[in-house]
Computed example of a mutant assay.
Amino acid sequence: MTIDIAPSPAPVRHPMLAQVVATRKLTPRLIRVTLTGSALDTFGYDGPDHLARVFLAPRADVELCLPASAERWWPAVQAMPDEVRPIVRNYTVRRLDGGRREMDIDFVLHAEAGPGSSWAATAAVGDQIGVLSDGAEYAPPADTDWQLLIGDETALPAIAAIVESLPADGHALVLLEVGDATDELDLAAPSGARITWLHRGATRAGHSDIVLRTLRETVFPVGAAYAFVAGESAMVTSVRRHLVGERGVAKQRVYFCGYWRAAAR
């Protein structure tokens, strides 16, 4: 992950326009979209799981319209006419290079494509998108001895960025649920990070218990843990319940976030 640390304009948190400069298939189901924009050197960045609200035109034949308000951007979006109101979704900033005014966002190409997945699948150089800096939550306490990082494809950008930000002597157990081996990525991890890819196979995303089954069989290192758990809502909830109720991890040392919710079987 690249984060520009050179002096730059004061960070701002308002919707800003960006354009696609490149796309690249990382796996059969993951595509990286590289963006540029004249204001990206002011994009406020707080950490490796930094959330960006993305704004997409409602249709390909409609020009993207962004809210002018920073503090009240959501009411401004809601007040727009239906035919121009942008679609808003949440994604993780995979890479930010303020000096080059570039940003990478990785999109999962879902079988049942939503607006973000559909847009990314056909994104071309010059296509426009809006981005809004919206903060980060990853915050291991100072006394953390080791980290537990758990997620599915939707959490892969955040967890990959976290792994790459670990110090050289950092220790982590990483459990990543994906469809199969073609979904795995090479991550720049320190020697103390043990990455385990969990393949759910033919089971639909959001309906596998492979993460919880593997976690129950995992021996934890000695010391104070910090857990970052993200992905499908039911998986995240079950993992948190296991960590707190069965492993005795303090609630305040577990960050969990349901990025999406699977449909009923």
Rank of each mutant, 00 (worst) to 15 (best):
Y259R: 07
E217I: 00
P115M: 03
A57M: 12
A76Q: 11
P58W: 00
L66N: 06
S38F: 08
E184S: 08
P86C: 02
G116S: 08
V125W: 14
G151A: 06
P11L: 11
M1I: 07
L30F: 02
D4H: 13
E232A: 01
L30D: 01
D106N: 12
P157Y: 02
A139Q: 12
L56E: 06
L149P: 14
R89I: 07
E246F: 05
S238Y: 01
R72A: 11
V77D: 04
D4W: 07
Y259E: 05
R89W: 00
A60F: 08
L176C: 10
R59T: 11
R95P: 06
A79N: 02
D209T: 12
A264M: 10
V219W: 00
S38N: 14
K251A: 06
D186E: 15
L56W: 02
L96T: 06
G130I: 05
G47E: 08
T214C: 03
G98Q: 15
S38H: 15
S238W: 00
D127P: 01
V125K: 14
G192M: 04
Y255V: 10
G258A: 05
Y255W: 06
A202W: 07
A124K: 07
Y255T: 13
S165A: 07
R241S: 10
L185K: 03
I31C: 05
G245A: 13
T92R: 00
A160G: 15
I162S: 01
D46S: 14
Y138G: 04
R265I: 07
G179M: 02
R261N: 02
V108T: 14
L96K: 11
V84A: 04
V178K: 04
A181P: 03
I105P: 00
L66A: 08
F220R: 08
P141G: 10
P221N: 09
L243M: 12
G258Y: 00
S117Q: 12
W74F: 13
L173V: 11
G37C: 13
A155M: 00
A120I: 10
R265V: 10
E83W: 03
L40I: 02
P58M: 00
V249N: 05
A160D: 04
V88Y: 08
R261C: 03
G98H: 11
W260K: 01
A160S: 14
E153C: 09
G231A: 09
P7S: 11
T237C: 10
S8V: 12
L166N: 02
R89T: 06
R216K: 08
L215E: 03
I150M: 11
D169F: 09
A139K: 06
T144C: 05
A168F: 00
V33Q: 03
L17Q: 12
V54Q: 01
T182P: 04
S38M: 12
H242F: 12
V77E: 04
F43I: 09
R240V: 04
A60D: 15
S118T: 14
D127N: 15
G130V: 06
I159S: 06
G126D: 10
D183M: 11
A6L: 14
H171E: 13
T23M: 14
T42I: 02
G151S: 03
I31A: 03
P7D: 07
A60I: 08
V20L: 14
R29V: 13
T203D: 01
R100K: 15
L51Y: 09
G116T: 08
I3Y: 14
H50T: 04
I150A: 11
L173Q: 09
D152S: 05
P81Q: 08
T34E: 15
A230G: 01
Y45R: 00
R265H: 13
L166R: 05
H110P: 05
D183N: 11
